[in-house]
Design a protein around this nucleic acid. Sequence first.
DNA 1: CGTATGACGTGCA
DNA 2: GTGCACGCCATAC
Length: 86
Amino acid sequence: MPSFKEKVLEVVKKIPKGKVLSYKEVAKKAGNEKAFRAVGSILNKNLDPNIPCHRVIRSDGKVGGYNRGIKLKLQLLKQEGVKVKK
DNA sequence: CGTATGACGTGCA
DNA sequence: GTGCACGCCATAC
C-alpha cells in the first residue's frame, strides 16, 4: 500500500518527455486532487534523480520552484520544448 | 499525538 | 492586471 507520497513520485516518474503536468493533475492521479499542496511538499523533501520533478508546474503556467535551482528547471523545460509563462 | 511547514490554488480588493 | 490573504492536504519533527 504505497503512501500518497509514493504514488505522487510514481506518477511524476511516468510523465513522458516533453509533457508537463500541474500539481493538481498529479495530485488527482495520486488519488487526491485536493492534496496538490502536499504534492509540492513531498517533491521538495524527496528529491530523486529518477523522478522528472521539473515537469511538474503550477496550474497558472508558472514553473513554481525547483529544489535543484529554478534556473535549471527552466532550462530543462525549454530543452524539452515546454514553454513557461511568467 | 499535536504542531509547524511547504515546489499550491482560488478569491477578492 | 497585480497583489494580498485564506484554505487545503500530507509529511516531518
